[in-house]
Write a protein that binds this DNA or RNA. Sequence first.
DNA 1: TTGAAATAATAGTAAAGCTATCATAATAAG
DNA 2: CTTATTATGATAGCTTTACTATTATTTCAA
Lengths: 225, 225
Amino acid sequence: MSIEIKISLNQGLYLKEPQDSVLGRKIIENSIILIDEYGFEAFTFKKLAEKINSTEASVYRYFENKHLLLLFLVNWYWEWVTYLITINTMNVDDPGKKLRIIIHSIVSASEEHPGVDYVNESKLHSIVIAEGGKAYHTKEVDDENSKGFFSSYKKLANSVSQVITEINPDFKYPFALATNLFEMSNNHIYFARHLPRLTEVKVNGNDLKEVEKMLKYFADKLLER
Amino acid sequence: MSIEIKISLNQGLYLKEPQDSVLGRKIIENSIILIDEYGFEAFTFKKLAEKINSTEASVYRYFENKHLLLLFLVNWYWEWVTYLITINTMNVDDPGKKLRIIIHSIVSASEEHPGVDYVNESKLHSIVIAEGGKAYHTKEVDDENSKGFFSSYKKLANSVSQVITEINPDFKYPFALATNLFEMSNNHIYFARHLPRLTEVKVNGNDLKEVEKMLKYFADKLLER
DNA sequence: TTGAAATAATAGTAAAGCTATCATAATAAG
DNA sequence: CTTATTATGATAGCTTTACTATTATTTCAA
């Protein structure tokens, strides 16, 4: 027996739902591998097409361009984190405990039970860490925002902010703290790996518990009453 | 009378010191204008050359490629913030007061007295906000880091972390807090302008006082003993 | 079995990102 | 003031990226 998860995303992100065909799933699977390997700048549809024994033209039938593909992957990732949080906090009432689970889910999303066989969650996490910011740091951000291309992230920020408010209703910046937890997690994993002088946190391979500890320390101090 | 500031940066960032010639200064001045206007992706040396009535080849004599030019600008910016902080905290002994000045300098760097006539500090600030992360989110980060291309930022983080430790020696993450103040400042200005649902902070034009207030609130809570 | 849809094969275009060469200014040294 | 040196301009060209178009072939469903 197996449970199948299909994450549905804003339809404007793709020309044709890639999760519904063999080729589409190969595009997702291998774009994750290649972006992780080469970085987003050096990643091209041509390389991807070669890797999956297909053609550029075929890839273009699924995604308008590589930026929208990245947006698709990043949205997929945040939807998946949302899903993990939902499951992991089920039947948990204490908001403090909830936040601890949320933080664990954000940091260690990639260690969790794999959801979908054509997505390597660990590599996708690396992509979000290294390239995620590029999804919204563009001149098209306002236009894309109006089309709902960032709604997965906003939805997640909203639900985390509610837990924060439950913990301490006097805390003035629940949204800012929520997004800061996401950004800080990714940033400090990246710093630990590449610019270690910018953080106290150390990361060995996929062991991210120091990051988790730091986020909890920050959240606790900020929310203590 | 006028005081001339020349910020000296890692020599690996450029092929030829742009601050020492008319053409070089035009490159700096107009690249800031164009990157701000078009965004980093759509910015090209060709457009820049046209704008300054020069040629692509001439621009390439100063900078190896547009990525290194961005790195140059970002480093220039952080050196400039460092300079502002140094001046503004002169003769200030109380570390709490120092941190407040630092936060003000980070957020409102662009409003300060202009330092150099060929640099529009306000536009440069916008570039750092929107494109700054791209300076280190690349596959070449380790190589560039080993060449000292991020030293301006690290130096600044180090000096801010020292002030943090002065305020509260028990605080466990002075570096992480320092970098987080920088990242948060840029992030939330960006969010306020483009993804307002992700933050409580509001920004009208160049009025960034809500951002400053938020950073102080965070820093105070984190450092209170 | 036929017909629609998906994919492959191939070709081609415009722009980006660079490098090379030579001519001409500007400037600095003797 | 002349001559070397260096900086810039003009022009050309090459490779890769990003994309579009056309036609052929396969797949799969009615």
